[in-house]
Design a protein around this nucleic acid. Structure first.
Length: 476
RNA sequence: CGGGGAGUAGCGCAGUUUGGUAGCGCGCCUGCUUCGGGAGCAGGAGGUCGCAGGUUCAAAUCCUGUCUCUCCGACCA
């Protein structure tokens, strides 16, 4: 235990340092030699692949197809939608040289792809029969951020961005909400992270959007993380890019567009929601290794133990992602700590005792619980325990979310909780009140929850009539 | 962009005050003994001290310039 503390700074000592220790020691990422960039190592990238697989399943089931659009966007396209360019221009990286020559028009490294995709959609769409257009792309984007943290805010990050065009406003609005719920399903089911779904206030909206919907998650330190967003863009981009179609009634009309995105930031959320002082705790559904087998190879029994462990691996890897850790240079104790740091949900210890008894020892990463199980029951027990761990991690996070969500009638009450947690209260809808909260407390309106209604009808800032219920918090 | 801190072996650091030709822990390599919660012993490899100038017989150390990282703040879907 003392040795663990040497490697990972306890959360209670320094949460930021704990986070950095965990992601580097668990072998998820390494810092690149340029500020704000990171390398996602195989173990971390595998988690991303599980997220991709789950999202792709949902996207396909709702009629979306994957495509790929260019990395670079000519300046004249990026600047077509006024609000959009104003929102993004401060953080755009530009390419000004090519082949040793200055370019006649500089090219933006995409910070998001509404503009280039909008330009292409305008070419492709002629008739109402061409609609809806439902595409998604997996790619990298670059935003020149001043303060960066691995996964949570990096200069370059990986994400998916969906872009759709619809014939009617209603259809586009339905799409926006459908995709939000897809995100919610994947994030809650696969990543075991409970979220609050809501609308963004005008001040927090995506640049160029009519309405932005968001999922907000609560991290282990009580700060909020925006974990996915879905935007109803109205006809703003359709008008800027001439996305028009001839409708059934013979009238030329603008399409209604949406865009929605989720990024590697989700992995940051995963770490901060489930991790503990021993390191990562991965939900089984996204764990690159679900079961690690550690053989205890003493003296003369070494061969029989290894054979037993290998048979166990063969048995289990039919249904689960299994690793047999037979490295001779490390002791079992070292391996336990090592795999716990990496968040492997389930460990199986097999030693001479187990070989003799025809049993194995199972140990859970989430609770630390151990049990001795007979060979015949191993497979079913592993399956049951993995399900149970997935459920337990979600339940634990859900409970923390509900415990740390506090209803207030005055925003100053949040001071009692050190501005940690989600605070809900009524809001008059005026930006001045939101600004006051931010200036005084550092908290922002995370969202206007979809199914909540005002409780008192009084704004938590000005005490005037309030028509909205909001969730506010300090955010990453 | 403002303020602080730091660049010496893969990682973490000492050495800089008072110049004298680089060291410790972990890790790594080899061998033997080990293995039910971070093993032990022995031997070994590895560094133009961020970079560029300058002072000096001599620079990790003093001077000048420069680059980078990091924390706090500001900014930021």
């Amino acid at each position: 235990m003392e040795n663990v503390l040497k490697e990972i700074t306890p959360k209670s000592v320094d949460y930021s340092q704990w986070y950095v220790d965990v992601i580097t020691k668990a072998d998820l990422v390494d810092y690149a030699p340029m500020k704000g960039f990171m390398v996602i190592k195989p173990y971390g990238y595998r988690i991303w692949e599980f997220i991709q697989e789950a999202m792709n399943r949902e996207f396909r089931a709702t009629g979306h197809e994957n495509a790929y659009f260019p990395l670079l966007i000519p300046e004249h396209l990026l600047t077509k939608e006024a609000e959009h360019v104003e929102g993004f221009s401060p953080e755009v990286a530009w390419v000004t040289m090519g082949g040793g020559e200055p370019l006649s028009e500089r090219l933006a490294v995409r910070p998001t792809s509404e503009t280039i995709i909008g330009a292409m959609y305008a070419k492709w769409i002629q008739s109402y029969r061409d609609l809806p257009v439902l595409m998604n792309q997996w790619c990298n984007v670059v935003r020149w951020e001043k303060a960066t943290r691995p996964f949570l805010r990096t200069t370059e990050f990986l994400w998916q961005e969906g872009h759709t065009v619809h014939r009617t406003r209603e259809e586009a609005e339905a799409e926006t909400l459908q995709q939000l719920r897809i995100y919610q399903r994947v994030i809650e089911k696969e990543l075991a992270i409970p979220v609050v779904a809501g609308r963004k206030s005008a001040g927090e909206r995506f640049a160029g959007a009519v309405e932005t919907y968001t999922l907000e998650a609560l991290m282990g330190d009580g700060r909020a993380l925006q974990i996915a967003t879905s935007h109803f863009l109205g006809q703003n981009f359709a008008q800027a890019f001439d996305i028009q179609f001839l409708d059934e009634d013979g009238v030329l009309k603008y399409g209604w567009t949406t865009s929605w995105g989720s990024s590697t930031r989700m992995i940051g959320g995963l770490i901060m929601v489930h991790g503990d002082d021993k390191g990562l705790r991965l939900p089984p559904r996204v764990a690159p290794i679900q079961v690690v087998i550690v053989p205890i190879m003493r003296g003369a029994e070494r061969e029989t133990v290894l054979a037993y462990a290998t048979r166990l691996k063969d048995l289990l890897e039919v249904k689960f992602r299994v690793r047999l850790d037979a490295r001779p240079e490390f002791t079992p104790g070292y391996k336990y700590n090592d795999w716990e740091m990496r968040g492997v949900p389930l460990r199986i210890e097999v030693g001479p005792r187990d070989v003799a008894n025809g049993s194995v020892v199972l140990a859970r990463r989430d609770t630390g619980a151990k049990a001795t199980v007979s060979w015949d029951a191993v497979e079913s027990t592993v399956e049951g325990w993995l399900d149970e761990i997935q459920r337990h991690l979600f339940e634990e996070a859900r409970q923390r979310l509900s415990e740390r969500t506090v209803a207030v009638t005055d925003y100053r009450e949040a001071a009692r909780y050190g501005y940690r947690g989600f605070f809900t209260g009524d809001w008059c809808g005026q930006e001045a009140c939101a600004d006051q909260i931010k200036a005084e407390t550092g908290m922002t309106i995370r969202c206007l929850p979809l199914d909540a209604h005002p409780m008192t009808g009084r704004c938590v800032v000005c005490q005037e009539d309030a028509s909205e219920r909001m969730v506010f918090a300090r955010a990453y």
